[in-house]
């Protein structure tokens, strides 16, 4: 329902540009550090896990392929999406929820400002764009982390890791990963705004709404992931 109303509000694209820029900035700056660190560890963990299989067969050239594929197509976007939903989605619900509890949203309505257009649409745009871009950064850090771990823990030279990565032609997977991330951003923004706008009942209401919002966002991420994985291989 809210999703349709957002789309309807988008049709004459007269949303508040300054508010959108402010949101883009806030979303990006809030979460780039956490995305970078998450990406770093995700890459490192995937290399260790692949390393176990590679170590048994001795095919170190496959290390870049295995870890790179897992990170770019699947683990990178999903982990970054989950962290993003915790950081930005939850924050968003808390913010909108506080506005709802303190009747600021009713005040906006009284001033004939449509809350969907003023509050939700900029966030929607910002999260979709930013999660896609942040996933690029996260992927970069993941590959960096993977190279470091393959050098230090697996004792596989980082060049072997990168050659394996480059030779396996993962551009398609990378693009699918970015597409997934943008769709996660979309679902996170709709879910978190929905739960934020319908908060009732003071401080504990806000807490409960944030809880429900992150749970629903996580389920949303998995379901979107399932559909996109299925759709991109058709």
């Amino acid at each position: 329902m809210l999703f349709l109303r957002i789309l309807r509000a988008l049709i004459p694209p007269t949303f508040d540009r300054r508010e959108t820029w402010r949101n883009l900035y806030k979303v990006g700056v809030q979460s780039y550090a956490i995305v970078a660190v998450t990406g770093f560890f995700a890459g490192a963990i995937m290399v260790i896990q692949t390393g176990d299989f590679v170590g048994r067969t001795g095919a170190t050239g496959l290390l870049g392929w295995g870890a790179g594929f897992a990170v770019l197509a699947e683990i990178g976007p999903v982990l970054i999406g989950l962290m993003f939903s915790g950081r930005v989605g939850a924050n968003n619900t808390a913010e909108l929820g506080t506005m709802a509890v303190t009747e600021q949203i009713d005040a906006l309505r009284a001033l004939a400002i449509e809350p969907i257009r003023h509050l939700v649409v900029p966030r929607f745009m910002a999260m979709m764009v930013m999660l896609g871009l942040l996933t690029c950064i996260g992927d970069l850090f993941a590959l960096f982390g993977g190279a470091l771990v393959s050098q230090w823990i697996l004792k596989v030279h980082w060049r072997v890791f990168y050659y394996g990565l480059i030779e396996s032609h993962l551009l398609h997977e990378f693009l699918v990963g970015i597409l997934k991330a943008a769709c996660f951003g979309l679902s996170i923004s709709v879910v978190s705004c929905y739960f934020g706008l319908r908060v009732t009942g003071g401080a504990s209401g806000v807490g409960r709404a944030v809880n429900q919002s992150v749970v629903a966002s996580a389920i949303g991420i998995w379901v979107v992931d399932l559909f996109l994985t299925w759709a991109t291989y058709l």
Partner: peptide, 16 residues
């Protein structure tokens, strides 16, 4: 209520 929202956000991020 703002503080509760912020605490919940922080909790999700720190735990993950």
């Amino acid at each position: 209520s703002e503080g509760v929202g912020a605490a919940t956000t922080r909790s999700v991020v720190n735990c993950s």
